[in-house]
Simulated scan of single mutants.
Amino acid sequence: MKRNVILLATAIAAIGSCNEADTSKTPPTNDSSQVKTSTADNKYVNQPLVTHIYTADPSAHVFNGRIYVYPSHDTATGTPENDNGDHFNMMDYHILSMDSVGGKVTDHGVALHIKDIPWAGRQLWAPDAAFANGTYYLYFPVKDKKDVFHIGVATSKTPEGPFKAEKEPIKGSYSIDPCVFKDDNGSYYMYFGGIWGGQLQRWNNNKYDSAAQLRKPAELAILPRVAKLSADMKSFAEPVKEIKIIDSTGKLYKEKDNDKRFFEASWMHKYNGKYYFSYSTGDTHNINYAIGDSPYGPFTYKGLLLAPVEGWTNHHSIIEKDGKWYLFYHDIQLSGKTHLRNVKVTELKYNADGSIQTVHSQK
């Protein structure tokens, strides 16, 4: 995001060190020569997980005791920049994995390419993954051939892929940034949506209107979406619902409250029986969090989870591994360019009352 950031009070040395990627199984990429391989910059609390390609929007999960990260793969396509994000013209996904935070990171190569998605047009944006039915599912947003974002699904028998895409997007899906959350009872929910280039403003009551506009400052802010997944993990079990993010008095935020209202990058995790919905505010560059008692919300705003990073966007995920919690995110340390980002990780800490200590990514 555009604003620079401040400092992180605590960080562990293993996270702060730059991890070297095992690329023995990784085919050459068309942007590798442009990636700065030196990360010797002391102003950053944490260093990129990999430096041989550009990565962003990390959705992290623990599968079979190993951490798998499902990021976007940024490349220098030369597409002009605009507010709709056309310069984020990603073509494929590379999946990263590691035994533990601070350990060696493996790039498993191309897991899914846009040319192998039958209905895809352009812009393969931030993905997520889940495991069920003995199968790994990769969920991804991409514009169809009419330039409308929908969410697709691909499957594999291994967490690193390669993945095979379904022939059509998930029926009833739209917009961007899928996050798939497994609740304690085994139910799976997909959270999604993003305004501006993510096109969420074009969808009202789950109907598409190409002429729909962004909300005016005094109007209620556009809300994120959720739907329970069917047992096959390839369809919605119910109509898509809006998620309410409210203040301490129970009121919804307005568009002018753009340091707190939803923009994109949904993530859901559970801590001490509570549901934590976190998200990006986009043009004000915060990652905020809100807490609720149901996977459907409402979620009461609690505070700033991650202060603005270097670069325009931010997109995060949260996991627990070996008794510690970790926050994955991205910035632009390697390139200095908004559309060429790099994934990082840091420890996440909770206070006794369940609130989260704000993370700052620069010293």
Results as ranks from 00 to 15, higher is better:
V5R: 08
Q333V: 11
L214D: 00
E238Y: 06
T346V: 04
Y54T: 05
H315A: 04
K302I: 02
A129F: 05
K244I: 00
F149G: 04
D144G: 08
V345C: 14
F299Q: 00
Y136S: 07
S230Q: 09
K25D: 09
R261C: 14
A132Y: 05
A212V: 00
P308N: 08
M98D: 10
S24A: 14
L340T: 06
S280C: 06
K256W: 01
E310Q: 14
R225P: 02
D57P: 08
K324C: 13
W267V: 03
D116I: 06
H73K: 03
A212M: 01
H150I: 00
L8N: 14
A265F: 02
Q47P: 02
Y289P: 05
N42L: 11
S266N: 14
T135Y: 05
Q47M: 07
S38W: 04
K244C: 00
G186K: 04
K270H: 04
A227L: 04
Q47G: 06
E347K: 07
D99M: 10
P298N: 01
K256H: 03
K241G: 00
G134Q: 08
Q362A: 06
S335V: 09
G161T: 10
L124T: 01
I318E: 12
Y139G: 06
D144A: 03
S266Q: 10
I246H: 08
D144W: 02
T55S: 13
F149W: 11
S187M: 08
V226A: 08
L138K: 08
K270M: 11
K36L: 13
A76V: 03
G336L: 09
Y189R: 06
Y296Q: 02
I243T: 00
Y326D: 06
N46L: 07
A40R: 07
L229M: 14
W196S: 05
T55L: 05
H269E: 01
A13L: 13
Y326N: 07
K171H: 10
E310D: 14
F277S: 01
L8C: 07
T23Q: 07
Q199E: 15
K324T: 11
Q123E: 11
S100I: 08
G273R: 02
T79P: 04
M1P: 11
I332D: 12
S187V: 08
G78D: 03
P118H: 13
I246T: 13
H315W: 02
D184E: 09
S294Y: 11
